[in-house]
Computed example of a mutant assay.
Amino acid sequence: MKALSALGYICRAAPQEAEWIRAARTEWRTQVSPSTRDESGYWVMVADASTGEEHDLDAHRLAMAWIYGDVVHHDPERRQEGDAFGLRDRFRAAVPLVAWAMVATIELLNFIRVLNEAGMLQLRQEVFGEQVALKSTVWEEPAEMYYAPVGAQPPSLANSPMPEGWLPLSKTTDLSIFRHLIAGQLLHAERSPSMTQLPSPEEIEAARTPAGGWKRDQLAAWGVPWPPPKGWKDELAERWEAARQDGAPPPLI
Rank of each mutant, 00 (worst) to 15 (best):
G86D: 02
G119K: 06
G86W: 04
E117P: 00
P96G: 12
V95S: 02
A101H: 15
L87N: 09
R88I: 06
L108I: 09
A94H: 04
N110H: 15
V95D: 04
G82S: 07
L123M: 11
Q80I: 05
V95Q: 10
F85C: 02
F111S: 11
G82W: 04
E107W: 07
A93C: 10
G82P: 03
R79D: 07
R78P: 01
P96D: 04
L115T: 13
A84H: 01
I106T: 12
M102S: 12
A104Y: 08
F85E: 00
V95E: 10
E126F: 09
R113W: 12
E81P: 00
R78T: 02
L115W: 02
L108E: 14
A94T: 06
G119Q: 13
R90F: 08
N116I: 00
D89K: 07
R88N: 02
V127W: 10
A84Y: 02
L123S: 06
R88V: 03
L87T: 13
R90C: 08
V127G: 08
R90D: 01
N116T: 01
P76K: 14
D89S: 09
D89E: 09
A104D: 13
A99T: 14
F111P: 01
Q125M: 09
A94G: 08
V98M: 13
R124G: 12
M120V: 12
A101V: 09
G86V: 04
M102V: 15
E107S: 15
Q122C: 09
L109G: 10
G82L: 05
L108T: 14
R124W: 01
I106H: 15
V95Y: 06
E107A: 13
G82D: 07
L97R: 12
A99I: 06
R113P: 01
W100K: 14
P76D: 08
A118L: 11
N116R: 00
F91Q: 10
P76F: 13
L87E: 03
T105E: 15
E126W: 05
V114E: 13
I106W: 11
A118K: 12
I112G: 05
F85S: 03
L108H: 12
G86R: 04
F111T: 06
F91D: 01
R79T: 02
T105P: 02
E126L: 07
R78F: 04
E107T: 15
Q80S: 12
A118C: 12
A93D: 04
